[in-house]
Amino acid sequence: MNDSHSAELLRYAAFTADPAGGNPAGVVLDATGLDAADQLAVAADLGYSETAFLTPAAAGGRAFAVRYFSPRAEVPFCGHATVAAAVALAERIGAGELLFETKAGPVPVLVEAGPDGVLAATLTSVEPHVEPVAAADLTEALAALGWSDGELDPAFPPRVAYAGARHLVLAAATRARLAELSYDFERLAALMTRLDLTTLQLVYRESEHVFHVRDPFPVGGVVEDPATGAAAAALGAYLREVHGVQEAELTLHQGEDLGRPGVLRVELRAGDPRIRVSGTAVPIGPRRG
């Protein structure tokens, strides 16, 4: 076992320009020498929904191997920690194109400075896919959430969507239903573990291109993820598959019900199955070592 406290641990808030908003992520820019147990220990000690651990990739240059750990387990891909890590890198080596080699596959990331000087990162997902959810599994998910069939939006049938990690997409018929989230933590965690789900992507459509979303994350040891880039990408894949959306720019509002508002931009491009997710990120307080 290596000394897991020897690596510099940074803290960033992703999908926000306010350190008190969005989703906090841990970032270790040089995880050389840290094994999986060390990385899990660092993530568990920090307590954020995800921490990203980077090491230089064999290709060199601006390519990095990245692993993502929640306080409870490793996940194949995490969007908000990708945005946080990319911005942290750009602050040190300059904006531009990066390549993250993740367990889900290669994820290109472009970091650019906005007019206000705040850095924003755009990740391009691995190729997504969408699959049906079994009736019994849907019934169990709704029971664990305390939702009824009648509280779902019939225009958005439940599906499991993947764009680097698996998410069950459930659409609430009203904003009030989405706002009142209180669920059976262990029951939902058991179902999600069996179905290999990272989060539930709970959504409410405000307008054609604007959604409010929430993401229970009990399998990671976290009640709710405040802003979820991987699930945002999965939602883009879902909308293409279920609603035939080929080209669109979507705005997702997440974290408002937690007091950590964040904004995620999702782009679908005609002719490209991959989904792009964009957001800003800023440091949180002093760095921890």
Rank of each mutant, 00 (worst) to 15 (best):
V213N: 05
L239D: 02
V160K: 12
K103E: 10
A233N: 04
R269G: 03
W147D: 00
T198L: 07
V111H: 13
S207F: 04
L181G: 02
Y68C: 07
Y12R: 00
A230V: 03
A63Q: 04
V263N: 08
F185L: 08
E208F: 06
G114E: 07
G271E: 03
V118F: 15
A36D: 12
E267V: 14
G220T: 09
S6E: 08
G94M: 01
A85C: 08
T55V: 15
E206I: 11
A136M: 07
A230F: 07
A84W: 03
G279A: 10
R205L: 14
P132W: 02
P19C: 00
T32M: 10
G22V: 05
S70F: 11
A227W: 03
Y162R: 12
R274K: 08
D3L: 11
L9S: 01
Y238G: 08
A231D: 03
A233T: 11
F64A: 13
P157E: 02
P128T: 10
E241A: 13
G21R: 00
R175H: 14
A234Y: 05
A57E: 07
H80F: 04
Y68N: 09
Y68R: 12
A172T: 13
P19S: 01
V282I: 02
R265G: 14
R194P: 01
T102E: 06
L188S: 03
V111Y: 08
A143S: 15
V75G: 03
G79V: 12
A171K: 03
I93D: 01
L264A: 10
R177T: 07
